[in-house]
Design a protein around this nucleic acid. Structure first.
Length: 211
DNA sequence: GCGACAG
DNA sequence: ATCTTGTCGC
């Protein structure tokens, strides 16, 4: 199995291939991926495919596999991508866009889980994390859609702290692959009409957790 | 050296 | 992520 130092070297190599360009193709199917760890060295990945903008489920699958990599901050993709690929094999509908539970380019080496998965699947991906990992930011306003930039040490914007619902903690949105931040924020808001977490991700989370 | 640290 | 139900608060 790959070692942490090898994983870091791979991230530095792969980051150059990440794109922040949105091709503008219409999004009719939005997907979401999430992974749970029940214990005993097992992983359970869930994929949910929904129509967009209607957000009606058209496919939901889950797949179990052995856990082959530990959780190490900054190396999440090496733990979660293998289980997701196992589920991906059985997927019948390929989404036009995939929401991921974690950061994209708002990462120490610019290659978070969402970006890595986007490269592997060659699909537009968005990172939507529930908490902070990397970068400086200010608390956004209290209303839905209020946001503030997340910046790296050079001051470059690498993500957005977005309030998806008034009065709740914001989520951290960043580009995964083949999308720009503005568009990513637009899709996250469109997928979060009433809850903090985008509906596709909520469902994937439930699917992965349910036995 | 010290603190931070997605899920 | 996981151990875990009801309950406090807007």
């Amino acid at each position: 199995m790959i070692t942490p130092s090898e994983a870091i070297a791979l991230q530095k190599r792969l980051r150059r291939s990440v794109s922040r360009r949105w091709d503008g193709r219409p999004v009719r199917l939005v997907g979401a991926a999430d992974v749970h760890f029940p214990g005993r060295g097992r992983s359970r990945a869930a994929l949910v495919i929904m129509t967009f903008p209607g957000l009606e489920t058209v496919e939901s699958i889950a797949a179990d596999s052995p856990t082959a990599f530990p959780y190490i901050p900054g190396l999440l993709s090496f733990r979660e991508i293998p289980p997701i690929l196992e589920a991906w094999k059985r997927l019948e509908r390929i989404p036009d866009l995939l929401l991921c539970d974690g950061h994209g380019t708002a990462h120490p080496r610019g290659l978070g889980f969402a970006s890595h998965l986007g490269l592997v699947l060659d699909l537009p991906t968005i990172g939507c994390a529930k908490s902070h990992l990397f970068g400086a930011f200010e608390e956004p306003g209290p209303e839905r859609a209020d946001r503030s930039p997340v910046r790296d040490r050079s001051g470059r914007t690498i993500g957005s702290v977005l309030r998806t619902r008034a009065g709740v903690r914001p989520v951290f949105v960043s580009t995964g692959h083949r999308i720009d931040l503005r568009t990513a924020v637009r899709f996250v808001l469109a997928c979060s009409p009433r809850h903090r977490i985008p509906i596709p991700l909520r469902l994937a989370h439930q699917s992965a957790g349910r036995i």
